[in-house]
């Protein structure tokens, strides 16, 4: 268990914002660049790893730009860092550029929207384990819900670049079309060929879209869309692997599907985090102990955020 004290430098680093683009009603993509030690540390960022951003000194948007449902929350003076995972990493000229896809939900993410090119933000990371790729898999199935798309976009890129034997297919879900955190849908021909989302298509990864209200793609939960697809799938369970990130209820459903079909499955979990570095014990995830009815708490920030689906005890 002596997993602390890694030689890896995890900061804190200062990153400089290069862009902060609004890509939907409440969705943004923040692009940040690291130099020197920070660049070195983030160059090897694995999909699913995350970082803790200090946004306490970042100003709020002007009150006219604060959505009505967040007016009260915006008043809160924030204290703790906030955890975010990454949707892309690019290494260029000794610099490392990373992207964060985020959704505005409260005081910290509201503040995040005011960051603009040239501003800097203090970051601790990379943190956590990230997704891993077991040997012998032929197909990787990426199931995302809402903001969970970020790390799976990064994973799609890495699978395409480094794991040629594996075909990746994405299943992206959201409540409505407006809440899909992607830029630009593809034309109809591409869609008929199965490439619904440009951001997955650029890695040659097929994607299926599902919305709860049927405003785009499959009408219903993404897990239903995924389940139906699996029913038609040609490969045996052992040749496939499921990667999923999104709301916990969705992850529980994905875990159930994986178990039923005997498919390996990795889930990226979220918990409220104070430190993000394994010290405060706030981010406990209840896990089964092999071969017993007992459970233990593992730390989402340090033992995760990616867990083997078989381990996790979901609260019903």
């Amino acid at each position: 268990m002596a997993k602390n004290h890694s030689a890896a430098n995890r900061g804190p680093f200062n990153a400089v914002i290069s862009a902060n683009k609004q890509i939907g009603q409440r969705f943004y993509r923040l692009s940040l660049g690291f130099e020197s030690a920070g660049a070195k540390a983030f160059a090897k960022l694995k999909p699913g790893q995350f970082a803790q951003l200090d946004l306490a000194d970042t100003p709020l948007p002007p009150s006219k730009d604060i959505p009505e449902d967040l007016v009260d929350a915006a008043r809160r003076k924030i204290l703790l860092r906030r955890p975010f995972s990454f949707s892309d990493v690019i290494n260029k000229d000794r610099k490392t550029l990373v992207d964060i896809l985020y959704r505005v939900v409260g005081p910290a993410t509201l503040r995040m929207t005011t960051l603009s090119a040239g501003d800097s933000v203090n970051i601790i990371g990379p943190l956590g384990n990230g997704f891993w790729v077991p040997r012998g898999k032929k197909q990787a199935l990426l199931v995302t819900g809402g903001m969970g798309a970020g790390p799976l976009l990064h994973l799609a890129k890495v699978l395409t670049a480094d794991h040629h034997g594996i075909e990746a297919i994405a299943f992206a879900g959201a409540k409505t079309e407006k809440e899909l955190p992607f830029e630009g849908q593809l034309d109809e021909i591409s869609q008929e060929l199965g490439f619904s989302l440009a951001e997955f298509a650029r890695y040659g990864v097929e994607s299926l879209v599902a919305t709860d209200d049927g405003s785009a793609g499959f009408a219903g939960p993404v897990t239903d869309c995924f389940s139906e697809w699996l029913g038609r799938a040609g490969l045996a369970g052992k040749d496939m692997i499921i990667y999923s990130c999104g709301p916990e209820q969705m992850l529980a459903k994905v875990a159930e599907i994986a178990e039923k079909r005997n498919i390996d499955c990795q889930l990226s979990m979220e918990r409220m985090m104070a430190c993000g570095i394994g010290i405060c014990q706030s981010c406990a995830v209840e896990c089964k102990v092999n071969g017993s009815s007992e459970t233990v708490y593992k730390m989402c920030c340090e033992d995760g955020p990616v867990f083997d689906a078989k381990e996790i005890v979901f609260s019903s």
Partner: peptide, 15 residues
């Protein structure tokens, strides 16, 4: 083992 989650919540200038 400790308590169930959520174990923390942020408040104004505190937690």
């Amino acid at each position: 083992k400790g308590n169930a989650t959520p174990r923390i919540v942020e408040t104004d200038s505190g937690m």
